[in-house]
Design a protein around this nucleic acid. Structure first.
Lengths: 225, 225, 225, 225
DNA sequence: CATGAATGAGAGTTCATTCAT
DNA sequence: GATGAATGAACTCTCATTCAT
C-alpha cells in the first residue's frame, strides 16, 4: 500500500520530487555560505566597529571578492540587518533561558531582567548595532518589513519582563511603562559603561543596575497609595 | 631695555599680559576665526549629523578652503572635541541657570535634573557627539588632556545635582551613586527616544523621566531602613 | 541498420528531415526557449533602454538564471543582434503590408515610405538598436554573417520604396540614390525627435517628414531638365 | 595726477588690488589644468567612445588620480557637457567663418550649410556626443542651465543658415522649418555614414548632401505656387 | 594665514562571463 | 539544459590630509 502511494506521488511531478534532495542540499549550502559571510561580518563589526565593517572587509574575511557578497545580500545594510536579527535572536534565547528556583514573580522578574542586562553587558557592540539601524535613518537595505521584524524581536525579548510585572500585580499600562523604564535604564548604564563614563564616577555598572532593580522590586512590594 | 622686556615676557604669563598690541590683536583674531569655524562645524553637525559634518563641509560653511582649517585645528577630531567642549559649556550654563522658587533641596534637585534632561532632549545631536568621542576609541585628535577637560566639564554639569542630593541627606557615596544613576537614566531614555524605540512601547520620554525623578524623590523622603 | 541510418543523416540536410522525433521536438523546444529569452530581452530593452537591458535583467525576466542564457546565445551582443534581426523582420512586414487604394506608383511610394517612417517613429528604441550594432565597432558577438544578414534585411525593407521610384520613371542609379536620401531623412528627423532637438525649433516630425516626401513627389512629377 | 589717483586706489582694498596678478595667474593655471583634463577627455572619447571615456581613463590620460578630477568638474557628466560646449563653439566658429565670394544669399546659404555638414562629417564623434546629452535623460551633471546653454549654442550655429533662407525670401516659419529639415538631413546622412549604412547602398555622403542642398536651392528659386 | 590642487585609499555597487555541479 | 556562486574588473564618487605656493 505505501509503495503504490509513493509510486502515485512520483508520477506527475516526479522531477520535483526526485530533485528535492539536491535542492535541499544546495539550499543548505547556500545557507551555510550566507552564515559564513555573517560570521565574517560579525567579526569585522566586533573588531572594527560599524565603520570598519565595510563590505570589502567583510568579503576579505569571508574569503570572497566584494561582488560575491551580493549573491547573498542585496546590500551592506541588509547584512547589518541580518546581524541585528541574529543578535536579537540570541538575546531572546538568553532571556527565555533565564529561570528562577522558586515560582515567585519577583524572583523570575529579576532573573529575566538580569539576563537582558548581562547579554548586552557582555556583548557591548551589539548595543551599537541595535541603535545604528533605527526608524527611517537609512533609506535602503532596511525595508519596512525587516524593520518591523526587528522591532518585534526586540519587544519579544522584553515580554518576559513585562509578564512578570503583570504577575506582580501591575496594570497593563504600568507594566509596559516599567518595562520601558527598565530597558532605558539598562541602555543608559551600558552606554555609559561602554563609553568609559561610569568609571569617571567611580561606579560600576552591575551595582548601578542592581540598585535600580532593587528599587523597582521595592516599589512592587509596597506600591504608592 | 629690550632685553629685560623680553626676559619679563618670558616669565610666568607675562607674555599674555604685556604682549605687544599687535600680537594681542592677532591672537584675538585667531580666536575669532577659530570660533567661526566652530560655528560652521556646529551648524553642519546639527543639520547633517556627524557623518555629514565632513571637513570639507565645515570649511565651505566657514568660508574657508579645506587646508585653511588646519591652521586652527590639528585634525577633524579636534574640531569635534572643541564642539563637545562648547556643548558641555552650554550644558553647564543651563544647569546652573536652573533655579527653584523655594529653597527646598528636593525642588532644586528636580529643577537641576530637569535642566540637564531638557538640554539633551532638545539637542539630541549633542548626545551623539558626546558618545562619539570616548576613551581610547579614536587614536588621534582627542588628547589625554582634552579628554580630561571634557570629563571635568561633564562632571561639573552633574555636580549641582549631586550637591542637592547631599543637601537632601545622602552620604557622599550615595549621592554620587544616585547622580550616576540619574545620568544613566536620562541617557537611556533619550537614546531610546532618539532611535525611535520609545514609540514602540507607546511611551513618551518626558513621562518616563518624570516617573524616575518622582521615585528618586520618594526614596529621598522615606529612605530604606 | 543503425549505421546506415547514421550515414544517411550525415549527408545533406537529411538530418533535419529524417531526424528522430525526439530530436525534432527538442530542437523546437530550444527554439521556443530562445524566443522566450528574446521576448524578455525585447521587453527589457523597450522599458529600460540598451543600458538597462543587462544580461541579468533579461535572464530575470525570462525566468532564467544568468548562466542559462549562454545555452542559447554566445553572449549579450548576440542577443542584441537577434533582437535587431527580429525588429527588421517586423519592419519588413510593416512596409510590405502598406498598400495603396489605387495603382498609382506615387501613391504606393508614399504609403511604403510612411510605413517605414511610422515604424521607427512609434518604436524609437529600435532605431537605437540598429545604430548600436554597426560595422566593426564591437568586436565580438556580431559575426560577419550576422552583419550581412542584418544588412540584407534592412535593404529589403527599403526595396519596395526603391521599386516604386523605378516605377515612377527613375533610373536605377537615381532610384537607389533617392531611396538612400529618404532613408537618411527619416533617420535624421527621428533622431532629432528622439533627442528632443526638434522641439527646440518648434517643429514636429510628421510635418517635416511629409514636407520632404512632398518635395520628392514633386521632383518625380516634374524632373529637372 | 595719475600717481595720486593710483595711490588713492591702493588705499582701502589695497590687498585685493595687489593680489590681482597672483590671482590672475592662478586662475589661468586652473583654467589650463581644466583644459588639460578636457583634452584628455576628448582624446579618450574620440578613441574609445563615450563608454570608454570613463573618469578613470580620463584621469589616467591627464596624469591625475581619479579624485583629482573632482577639483575641476563636479562629476563625469559635467565633463561631457563641457566637451559638448566646446564642440559647439568650434562648430559655431566654422559656420561663421564660412563666407561666399559674392553676396548672393543662395551662395552664402550653401557655404554655411556645407560648413555645418563638413564639421560633423570630419568629426563624427562629436555628433554622438551631441546626442548623448539630451533633454532629461541623465539626472545629474547636465543642469537645466547647462542644457539651455548647449541648446542655445546649437541653435546659434544654425542661425546663419536660417538667416540666408530669410534673405532668400522665405517667411519666418518657412525659414525655420527648412533649417530644421536641413539639420535633420545632415544628421541623417552622417549617422548613416558613421554606422556604415551608406556604403550598403553604394552611395557617398557628400553627394547625398549636395543633392539635398541643390533641391533646396531649386525650391528657393522657383517656389511652389 | 590661506589657497586649492593633489594624493591615496577606500566606499558601495554592477557587470558579463565562467564553470563545477 | 540549467543553476547560481564566484570572479575580476570596472564603475563613480568622497574623504581627510598634505603641501608647494
Amino acid at each position: 500500500m505505501p509503495k503504490s502511494t509513493i509510486a502515485l506521488e512520483e508520477t506527475g511531478n516526479a522531477r520535483r520530487t526526485r530533485a528535492e534532495p539536491r535542492l535541499r542540499r544546495e539550499r543548505a549550502l547556500t545557507e551555510a555560505r550566507r552564515n559564513l559571510i555573517l560570521d565574517a561580518a560579525r567579526a569585522a563589526f566586533f573588531e572594527l566597529g560599524l565603520d570598519g565593517a565595510s563590505l570589502r572587509e567583510i568579503a576579505k574575511r569571508a574569503g570572497y571578492t566584494p561582488g560575491a557578497i551580493y549573491s547573498y545580500f542585496a546590500n551592506l545594510e541588509e547584512i547589518y540587518g541580518a546581524l541585528l536579527g541574529e543578535s536579537l535572536q540570541r538575546l531572546n534565547a538568553c532571556v527565555e533561558a533565564a529561570d528562577a528556583d522558586s515560582g515567585v514573580p519577583a524572583e523570575l522578574l529579576q532573573r529575566k531582567a538580569r539576563a537582558f542586562y548581562v547579554f548586552y553587558r557582555d556583548n557591548p557592540k551589539e548595543l551599537d548595532l541595535g541603535f545604528y539601524l533605527f526608524d527611517g535613518v537609512k533609506p535602503r537595505g532596511l525595508t519596512p518589513e525587516l524593520n518591523h521584524t526587528l522591532n518585534e524581536q526586540l519587544m519579544s525579548a522584553l515580554r518576559p519582563i513585562e509578564r512578570q510585572l503583570l504577575a506582580s500585580g501591575l496594570s497593563a499600562d504600568e507594566a509596559i511603562s516599567e518595562t520601558t523604564g527598565l530597558f532605558a535604564h539598562i541602555v543608559g548604564v551600558l552606554v555609559l559603561n561602554n563609553t568609559g563614563r561610569i568609571r569617571l564616577f567611580k561606579q560600576d555598572p552591575d551595582t548601578l543596575f542592581q540598585r535600580h532593580l532593587d528599587a523597582l522590586l521595592e516599589r512592587l512590594r509596597s506600591p504608592r497609595a
